[in-house]
Write a protein that binds this DNA or RNA. Structure first.
Length: 642
DNA sequence: ATAGGGTTAG
């Protein structure tokens, strides 16, 4: 083996062509097949200029894999076959010794040019990156990806991209796409690589980048797989980015990426979660048109959508879908029943929930979720005894309560001011091998605060910290609500600041509390500024927010401002609910505008809203006792039934 | 790769 040492900077060679190359390096050449120095020099220059070296050694006709080049300060060269073997055997420390101060990028180039095994190159790539603590140029990364794609080493690409995406902060999608197309224009390889890039981004919680890559793939005409698109859609749904979900769905159709059952179910779920139920039905029809039948998951998703966002008569609509499902020979499962039971409970119709529960037992086994929904429903409707009965029933069936079960029942005791029993249940949690969650603590802290047991509340907060359960925004909301109730705004503000110091963000409930507090101080204008701040922060005000502010203006006698808030609320897609009407009716009564109040009452009834106890009290105290008989036809009887 | 349960605000 002959060595051809050159003095520094031969023939105008720039020593800093590579970042690690020092000017005082001596470049050594080693051509195992020939002793032709000229050949070696040409090869080196080509490599330095990043010209791809291919073919054979000029004089010996050996493949160039037998030629190795190093830029090393010592006279010791490296040999490609040896390196290959060391990489293959993963003898890293030996490899390190062998390479000494060689330019690892030059080695990489050589491995590529020598047509080495792609998996071997990948190994060296990863090792050198880690060992020298550097990031290889994007060009080499893309070259490697192409190399692997051509060898159909897809699982290797997947794993590689996973690591790449996790650590990549330098390269934008734009440069990755650009470099990838520069390195090779095999269309299929590029499509496969980009497809896996989308997936890798999604899996690493970089949904935004995944979406961006999806968009760019469209610009480049790369065809993505339905699997990656579904993962992207699923992540977008979880992050509540339904606008993007609709976009991706439409794009898939346009790009002729064939949507499957999963695609449709995910999109339907996304639409349901934000209450776009009609659109969800449209997608259900789309899928049927494509010859794909909704399955139990699709139907469950739709039923759940109606249960949670169906508005008036939602349980009837949910029931209609159940019938449609059965008519299409799709059998309801435990989850279907759980959804319905929870729906009836949340609709304050526990009786129907229990009926569905009994029906379910005919052919299916209720599980812990079933019991949790029912226990919670009963607790929220004051039926603590029945809830306890179900607790015993589930234990009898060998079903183990989980933390959700505990939380629901603890909440039930709290609502009945049975704090001793609530605490006993709390202390029992650990016996079952469970741990209290933030919700457990929040429930109890809130209840102690509400019942004026401040010492107990503080103690629980401390125990929460000791057990390393992080207080969340809800925890602080409980405290802020507590101090607002006590009129101690200074302390409320202190906790708000403390919350923000801990990096916890105010949520819509925090804002409602602050808006309510300002309104009670007669500062409704300032409260409205907080409402606008919510929009700026991307938080959506709920009915409660608008109703609270409306109530504030009504108390101040500013009906015009209150009505404006209603307009804004409806513009934002929130329909007036029962509380809205109660607030406005009462506001108008207080100002003696009984005729307008009566019109509002009629409007409310026309909209099918069911008057509640508060409505009744307003009508009785503010209208009837003042000699005004509301003109609400047959509804007066219903109102009087309270 | 798609579906279900628990806390805080009017």
């Amino acid at each position: 083996m002959a060595v051809f040492p050159y003095t520094e900077k031969p023939l105008g060679l720039q020593a800093n062509s590579y970042p690690k190359l020092n000017s005082n390096l001596t470049s050594n050449f080693n051509c195992t097949a020939t002793e032709n120095a000229e050949t070696s020099l040409v090869l080196l220059l080509m490599l330095q200029a990043r010209v791809h070296v291919q073919g054979h050694c000029r004089t010996c006709i050996r493949p160039c894999s037998s030629i190795s080049i190093s830029t090393s300060p010592s006279s010791q060269p490296f040999s490609l076959p040896i390196i290959s073997e060391l990489i293959a055997k993963q003898h890293w420390s030996e490899l390190k010794t062998h390479l000494k101060d060689s330019n690892f990028i030059a080695v990489l180039h050589q491995l590529f040019d020598a047509g080495a095994d792609p998996v071997l190159i990948l190994r060296y790539f990863s090792w050198s990156q880690k060992n020298f603590n550097v990031t290889h140029p994007l060009e080499l990364t893309c070259r490697l990806l192409h190399y692997l794609a051509n060898a159909k080493k897809y699982s290797k690409i997947r794993a590689f991209l996973d690591g790449f995406v996790r650590n990549n902060e330098k390269h934008s999608n734009s440069s990755i796409f650009h470099m990838l197309s520069m390195c090779g224009n095999q269309f299929c390889a590029n499509s496969v690589i980009i497809d896996m890039l989308v997936l890798a981004n999604v899996k690493n919680m970089k949904t935004r980048l995944g979406f961006e890559a999806f968009q760019r793939a469209g610009d480049y005409g790369f065809k993505l797989s339905v699997l990656s698109c579904n993962s992207l859609l699923s992540a977008l749904v979880k992050e509540n980015e339904i606008g993007y979900v609709e976009y991706v769905y439409k794009e898939m159709v346009r790009r002729r990426i064939e949507a499957d059952l999963f695609t449709f179910s995910i999109v339907i779920n996304g639409l349901c979660k934000v209450g776009k139920l009609n659109k969800a039905r449209d997608v259900t029809n789309d899928m049927k048109a494509w010859g794909i039948s909704p399955n139990v998951v699709t139907y469950n998703t739709l039923i759940d959508g109606y249960c949670k966002k169906g508005g008036l008569g939602k349980m009837h609509k949910a029931d209609a879908i159940l019938k449609e499902m059965v008519a299409n020979n799709v059998r309801p499962n435990e989850i279907t029943f759980n959804i319905l039971i929870d729906g009836f409970c949340k609709d304050e119709n526990v009786a129907s929930a229990v009926k569905v529960f009994e029906e379910m037992k005919q052919g299916l086994k209720p599980n812990v979720v079933t019991y949790n929904s029912l226990i919670n429903g009963l607790c929220c409707n004051g039926k603590l005894d029945e809830a306890c009965g179900l607790w015993d029933e589930m234990l009898g069936l060998g079903l183990k309560p989980n933390i959700v079960t505990y939380n629901a029942l603890i909440n039930g005791f709290c609502k009945k001011k049975m704090m001793k029993e609530a605490k006993e249940l709390f202390d029992d949690i650990m016996n079952g091998g469970l741990a209290p969650s933030a919700i457990t603590y929040n429930t109890l802290i809130d209840a102690y605060c509400k019942h004026g047991m401040m010492e107990e509340a503080y103690a629980l907060h401390n125990s929460m910290l000791e057990r390393r359960v992080s207080p969340n925004t809800s925890t602080f909301n409980c405290w802020i609500a507590c101090f607002c109730r006590q009129g101690n705004m200074e302390l409320a503000r202190k906790f708000l600041r403390e919350m923000e110091v801990r990096g916890l963000k105010a949520d819509p409930i925090t804002y409602n509390l602050l808006i309510d507090a300002l309104c009670k101080e007669g500062e409704s204008r300032k409260a409205e500024r907080l409402l606008n701040e919510m929009f700026k922060k991307g938080l959506s005000p709920s009915h409660v927010t608008y109703n609270t502010l409306m109530d504030g203006y009504c108390r101040e006698g500013n009906l015009k401002a209150a009505l404006n808030v209603r307009l804004q609320m409806e513009k934002e897609g929130n329909r007036a609910n029962i509380v809205t009407f109660n607030v406005l009716i009462k506001g108008h009564c207080m100002k003696g505008k009984l005729k307008v109040a009566n019109e509002l009452l009629n409007e409310m009834l026309e909209k099918g809203l069911v008057p509640n106890r508060t409505t009744y009290e307003i009508v009785k105290e503010e209208m009837m006792e003042k000699g005004f008989l509301p003109d609400i036809e047959g509804h007066l009887y219903n109102i009087s039934s309270f």
